[in-house]
Design a protein around this nucleic acid. Structure first.
Lengths: 140, 140
DNA sequence: TAACAATTAACAATCATTGCTAATTAGCAT
DNA sequence: ATGCTAATTAGCAATGATTGTTAATTGTTA
């Protein structure tokens, strides 16, 4: 995702308005690697701007996703998560704490058993235990 | 997933009852490679047994999943899909028709950029166009 | 600065799924 | 075969995530 300043320009030239609510969300998402849900973002936004509506958060997330500034991912937590890292990468989900980490693979896996299908994209979800959660289990 | 006959034995020895509703679902799921949702299964079941409740379908799907007879997958279609193929495989989703195909990979992709995470499972979702949908686009 | 379209907040509505409960029924022991 | 008991069912309410709607507000551009 581009910087708040660049997004401001991009939104205006797309005929979209740059409101205080959107500026706040730009800032909250910039360099955010926590893979937040709409709801967790709304909580963070409310701390700064009480009264901001969840609907507005959803709206802006949708806009950013459509503009290619955000990626939305599903990792089985019940709600969509948003990722400002739109480079080609994958995700590792900790079964202990639920945290989502960005992951890069060295080579795309080769398919077998599927004729007649042209692949345009692949997304891998790894599951396991993060370092902190492994340590916790060992302590018990 | 094992055969309806084997499941009947397995359910009984787990202290679960084998009802007509469950027998029907066993049959509808056996060798089913369509990756149905709870709702589509309920429709299929209703055609044979009018009055069967969606709640019962969910219940049985949960039971089968917990017993390791089914795998549940999320492919971004809004609802969970169930797969009686519990072998180690992945999925390809057609962006045209939404159909889900089973996919096998030759080698698990190697991680990079993630220290201190022990992976227990990986699931890949491929996206693209199936043969039929590619043909359709070419015709237009 | 005025005008207009885009945005917001609030609320209702939808969809998938789960919780609850009274009535029914499978499966076991007689 | 019959009865007992716990599991199951259907029906409906409730939840959580997300989207639709709308009147009032506010950026943006001329």
């Amino acid at each position: 995702m581009r910087s708040p300043e660049e997004l401001t320009v991009a939104f205006r030239s797309a005929g979209l308005k740059v409101t205080p609510q959107r500026q706040l969300l730009f800032r909250l998402l910039h360099d955010n690697s926590s893979h937040p849900t709409a709801d967790s973002l709304h909580s963070a936004a409310t701390a700064v701007m009480p009264g901001i509506s969840l609907r507005t958060v959803y709206q802006t997330l949708t806009d950013l996703t459509q503009m290619g500034e955000l990626q939305s991912i599903e990792v089985g937590s019940g709600s969509l998560r948003f990722d400002p890292n739109v480079s080609d990468h994958h995700h590792a989900v900790c079964d202990g704490c639920g945290d989502v980490h960005d992951v890069y693979i060295t080579k795309a896996p080769v398919l077998r058993g599927l004729d007649d299908f042209s692949v345009s994209d692949a997304h891998i979800v790894y599951r396991g235990q993060c370092g902190a959660c492994s340590a916790l289990v060992a302590t018990k």
